[in-house]
Each structure stands twice: as C-alpha cells, then as structure tokens.
Simulated assay, not measured.
Amino acid sequence: MDQIQRAEITLLQNLQETFPDHETLILAISRFGAPKNAFLLCFPIAFCVFGARSGLQILWVAVISEWLNAVLKWLMMGQRPYWWVMESPVYMGEERPFLKQFKITCETGPGCPSGHAMVTTAVWFVFVSSLNEMILSEVKNSRNAKMATRITWTLYGIGSVLVCVSRVYTATHFPHQVILGSVTGVLLASVIRQYPVENYGFGSYFLLGLFFLVSIFIEYYLISLVGLDPAWSFKLALKRCVYREWVHMDTTLFYAISRDVGAFVFAGMICSCLTVNYERTRGQYVMKMTATLLTIAAALVIDTMYVPRRYIALFYILGAFKSGLVSVSTVALNQIVSSFSRQNPNL
C-alpha cells in the first residue's frame, strides 16, 4: 500500500505543479462539493422544486452516506496525503516531496473513503434522478426531454470528477480514496432511491437517528478497547498542518454525525407535525422559485450562526440543533409559500 500511495503522491505533486494558476477555481469546486451543502442547497432545492419526497430522499441519502463514511473511515484508518508524506518511512534517506496545503486541506478524520466524493456523488445522483423525472414529465417533446436528461447525467459525471480532482489537488485525499468514495456513493444512492421515505413517521426518524449516533459511539469505544487511538488522525492533523488554525472541529467525524442526526430527526418531526404533500406538482414555477430562494436564504443565514467551541459536547449539541433548524425552516417555509399560493392563485 505504501508504494501505491507513493505513486499517488507523485501524481498529486504533478497536479499541483501543472495547475498553479487555477487554485481559486479548484478550491471553490471543493467547497461546493462539501457534504454540508447537501443540507444547505440540495435538500431545499429538491424539496421545493421536485417535491417533498425527492427532498427527503436527498436528506436520507446525505445522512446515511455520511454515517457510512464515518464508519468506514474508522475501520479502514486511511491516511491523508498532507500528513502521510511527512510520516511515512517510505521516504527515509531521501528528500520528501513537497505538497502545498490550503485552508481546506487539514481535515481531521481518517482519509478513506473520501467523504466529499461519497456524499456528493450520492446526493447529486438522487438530485439528477429527480430532475430528470421532472424533465420527462413536463417537457412535451420526448426527443428534447431525452436529450436534456443525457446532458444532466453528463454534467453529473463532470461535476463528480471535478470534486474528486479538487480533493486530490488540495492534498486532502489520495486518488484511490476518492474513487472508492464515489463508487460507494453511487451504489448507496441507487438503493436508497427505491425506498418510500415518505411513509416513515417521526418514530422511524428518531430511532434511526439514535442508531446512527449510538453506533458511532460504540465503534469509538471498540476501537479504544482493542488498544487503538480513535483520535490518531486528529493528532496527526494538528502535528502536520502547516497552520494550526486551519484545523477545525467541524471537520471531525463526531460533528458530521451530530449535524446529520439533527437535520434528520428535526425533518421527521416537522413533517409529522405538518400536512405535507409529498408528490411533485406540475408547473407553479413562480411558487417553487420563491420557496426555493427563501429556504436557501434561511439555510445560509442559519449556517452563519456562531457555535461556541469552548465546550466540545456543547459544540456538537448546538451543531445538531443548527442543522435541525435548516430542516425545520425548509419544510415550514415551503408549506407557507405553498399555502399562500393556493389562497392567491392569481398571483
């Protein structure tokens, strides 16, 4: 494995040296493919435009893929390039390659599989599938509709590849990690896409969210029980990141799971409290666009809310509530706009 990673380091180094003038674009692509955007952008857009069922499918696939990613990361204990190149005995007696680091490089969890690749490909798969369903049902010319679906799948492939390349470029992941993450994400999405998520009530959301949380703590305990250090990757991040302030607590696996559980449970709660129409409605583009803009704006405002980092447990709890507010605002605002639209059909 060391020799494979050594070859991948050479590829990574060549990538950085070949595209030094495209750093801003590559970093923007990496940030756009961040798992949190599944909740801040994809979920609100899908819920308002494609219908509640598609929106909840995206939420489910985002949560399950990120949970599975966390489980696999601790099991596989994959290295990240930016610390491996400084720690590996492969380079003993010779000059170690130089890898440029960026503000988004110093993630703290194990590296395999890539969370960006896994969550993004899974979420975008469901998003594009829902988009194509809408295109096929609303575009009258079947030839044009089929051509449009081919274009969307092509854009999906290009976007997924660009996100993967950006993660390699920033020295956050090895190529094999983003490939594994992408394949797993697509397979997972194709399975979850078949589930009738609209049939599950708050109890199912709560129990499944509890399972996600408890299973992570159990895995953490078992890793400790066999004599391994679950925090080994965090320590390496602190040790090998060029600037300590680039190491952020919101890149830890526990924060990702707390965010997921918060968004998931609160979504189940608000959907159970309100009468939600899960089927996609044809037309009504003004209403859909209004709801989409409002929900995205609310999500982005909530995302800017400061969460104190002094107490770790409180940081995770507040992070869960913060993500939960995104779910609540998305469902509630969409319901308000839909209700207003029905009462004022001429607007």
Rank of each mutant, 00 (worst) to 15 (best):
Y82F: 15
A313D: 10
S272F: 01
F264R: 04
M134N: 06
T304S: 12
L180F: 14
V286G: 11
I104Y: 06
K140A: 12
R259G: 13
Q284A: 14
N344C: 09
L238I: 01
S160N: 12
Y220D: 13
A34V: 14
V128A: 06
T275I: 01
P308S: 10
L294V: 12
I179H: 06
F211V: 05
S142W: 04
L294N: 04
A299R: 09
Y311Q: 11
F321K: 07
C241N: 07
L162Y: 02
L325T: 00
L274T: 01
I336M: 12
L72W: 03
M134S: 07
H22C: 07
D250H: 13
V61R: 02
G33F: 04
Q335E: 10
D2M: 10
L40C: 09
E133W: 01
M92E: 14
A189F: 07
S142H: 10
D260W: 00
Y285V: 14
H173F: 05
L210P: 03
H22W: 13
L207Q: 01
S190M: 14
G51L: 03
Y200G: 00
L225N: 04
C164E: 06
I135A: 05
G319W: 05
Y195K: 12
G78A: 06
S339D: 06
T170L: 08
A231T: 15
K100I: 01
G115Y: 08
A231R: 13
P175G: 10
Q101W: 09
I336F: 11
Y221M: 14
I58T: 04
L225E: 07
F206H: 02
V126G: 07
G157M: 04
Q13S: 10
S54L: 07
